[in-house]
Design a protein around this nucleic acid. Sequence first.
DNA 1: CTCACTTGGTTCAGAATTCAACTTCTTAGG
DNA 2: CCTAAGAAGTTGAATTCTGAACCAAGTGAG
Lengths: 158, 158
Amino acid sequence: METETATNWLSDDEQCAWRTYLDVNRMLTYQMEKDLQPFGLTNNDYEILVNLSESADKRMRMSDLAAATLQSKSRLSHQITRMENAGLVRRENCESDRRGLFAVLTEQGTATMEKVAPHHVASVRRHFIDLLSSEALADLRESLGPVAEHLRGHRGKI
Amino acid sequence: METETATNWLSDDEQCAWRTYLDVNRMLTYQMEKDLQPFGLTNNDYEILVNLSESADKRMRMSDLAAATLQSKSRLSHQITRMENAGLVRRENCESDRRGLFAVLTEQGTATMEKVAPHHVASVRRHFIDLLSSEALADLRESLGPVAEHLRGHRGKI
DNA sequence: CTCACTTGGTTCAGAATTCAACTTCTTAGG
DNA sequence: CCTAAGAAGTTGAATTCTGAACCAAGTGAG
């Protein structure tokens, strides 16, 4: 009794698209990281700074931040500890739920953001945005949007 | 004397495209990793297996493999050691350059590839390829190709 | 009320990654 | 030749990440 169905391999075009996507992905991450390095930040640090700086009162609950950045609670906890030591954020108790903690952007964290953001944007432009026509960009949004939706609804499920 | 030029911030559309791209990136990586987990492989393992299995004689020089996967020599060395312990690859001396080493796919490595690949392809389809129309896919190839080119030419430079 | 269950977060141990030596071999210049 | 510079890999220590165990605080059914 054969329950296996024949594998639906990728066509050449599909294969090519997928690999290109992966390549861009990997190289872009690498390049962003390199471009942040002079400021002593990692991609991860930066992402957290962005999240915090865009939140009301520049603060977020640990678990929300973990969810937003798709990190485990454990990893985020370590990460925030490091950033706390670097003076970028601090932890603050949550009144309404005494189990909870906020990660809060410090003055220095805000200042860092303001200093680094322009360079980061320039980097994003140089290595991505400015290499795409505005139509290409629109297409990208439209086609990747549903993929993002799909993945969001998936969270760990098979 | 003001040498700063005004920051060319991202427009809403650009911002949205960029964030969508980042989100898909992160969630997709996460999902691929999850889907490989039952087979005891990481994305990294899999990528190396793919590279080796597509190479002549199922072997690659360590440095070429490092370059192909954008890892440091050190990291690759550790990685190969682990995979060697798992029986997936072995190291072999290089005749022509006695400093050099090949990473070679073992029988077991090949078998693992054959077993896992169909599931991996299915995963790629489910979470990416099949969510895009063939036009969207073609557009993606066309617009991301030059980005990949640009990044390839960049390798660490600012 | 209270006992089980969930949630929010940390901690610890083990695994992976980085970074800076270090070894060996190759190559090019004089 | 011989030597200095560079390339191929490895190693080890320090850092980061993962996963499970844990604690403390909220939730809710009986």
